[in-house]
């Protein structure tokens, strides 16, 4: 089989096609298109069409005419604060989870105990998909005002709520988000960490690098592309999270998804769907901006992979 050299020296199976050959061959092109067809349909129906509808609606008045009013409203007052809250919460939760998740992935990758490996990855798979009411309840029962952990700490003379902590604050929400973001980071980073070769660290040490320098000059730069990609996934995951925050804060903290939920459900004022779509449009823009920033950083960090 033909092979193509790749990073780390492993060989990837090549397609056996000369570059551009598939594109020039109509039959082959059709087969390739059929292969990705179902995914493209899915993408169109459940991402492109809804997104286009949201963007269109964001610039429409309830009567259907063009207006900037929704956009202006979405960037003022409580909605602007909601953007600030969502960005702050997502950035803090994503960054903290990314760092902690990477450390756990490194620790796990360096362990030679397969049972521990399986247990942790299985646990992470479960935790990364836990959210909404069950997660909120679990945290209320443990570190809520009268949660078990809170009571235990109180019995020891330290009630965190007497020292400024609240589960129902931005910091409390960030902790709850970390519950599913850290395991997600572990799962996403583990393959990248496992691909780090011992020889790189040993070669660096032989050239005079201390352990810290091995990581600083080799481990971290090699992991950077995967870390940035995972960080973006975590950020967007946290930015779009709705159910857990809604259940936990009951709207007491301004977050964009909660504001959109309120507007679409008509809990406060009827006929505000266009404003909700304007907020949704703003969320799309935030994700696009983050995506562009990621692409720029990734282009620099992953220069050696091209």
């Amino acid at each position: 089989m033909d092979t193509t050299p790749s990073a780390g020296g492993r060989a990837l199976p090549s397609s056996g096609l000369a570059p551009g050959r598939a594109a020039r061959h109509p039959g082959r092109l059709l087969r390739h298109a059929l292969g990705v067809g179902p995914f493209l349909c899915y993408l169109t129906l459940f991402l492109i069409v809804p997104s286009a509808a949201v963007v269109t609606s964001a610039f429409q008045s309830p009567s259907g005419g063009f207006t900037w009013a929704n956009i202006r409203a979405s960037l003022s007052g409580v909605y602007l604060q909601a953007y600030g809250g969502s960005l702050e919460l997502s950035a803090i939760a994503a960054l903290a989870s990314a760092v902690l998740g990477t450390i756990i992935a490194v620790a796990l990758a360096s362990s030679d105990r397969p049972l521990l490996h399986r247990l942790v990855t299985t646990g992470c798979g479960v935790m990364a998909n836990t959210g909404g009411l069950p997660l909120a309840f679990a945290f209320i029962a443990s570190i809520g005002n009268f949660g078990i952990v809170t009571e235990m700490l109180s019995a020891l003379g330290f009630n965190p709520y007497d020292h400024g902590f609240s589960l129902y604050s931005l910091a409390g929400l960030a902790i709850v988000y970390c519950y599913f973001l850290i395991p997600l980071m572990v799962l996403v980073m583990l393959p990248a960490v496992q691909a780090l070769r011992q020889e790189w660290f040993e070669a660096a040490a032989m050239l005079g690098a201390r352990r810290r320098q091995c990581w600083q000059l080799v481990g971290i730069p090699v992991l950077a592309p995967a870390f940035l990609a995972a960080l973006m996934v975590l950020f967007t995951d946290a930015f779009a999270a709705y159910a857990t925050a809604d259940v936990l804060t009951q709207g007491s903290i301004g977050l964009v998804p909660i504001e959109i939920g309120s507007l679409i459900q008509g809990n406060v004022l009827a006929g505000q769907q266009n404003l909700g779509d304007a907020l949704g449009f703003g969320m799309i823009l935030v994700v696009v901006v983050v995506g562009v920033a990621y692409a720029v950083l990734q282009r620099r960090a992953a220069r050696w992979q091209r």
Binding site: A204, A205, W304
Partner: peptide, 27 residues
């Protein structure tokens, strides 16, 4: 190892993948 000032060539694939040939040598 970092104190011994010995040069070592490994079996394979020990070059730092994120550095060019010249940066590897200059490491």
């Amino acid at each position: 190892p970092h104190q011994r000032n010995l040069g070592m060539v490994f079996q394979a694939y020990s070059l730092f993948p994120h550095l060019t040939a010249i940066s590897n040598v200059a490491f």
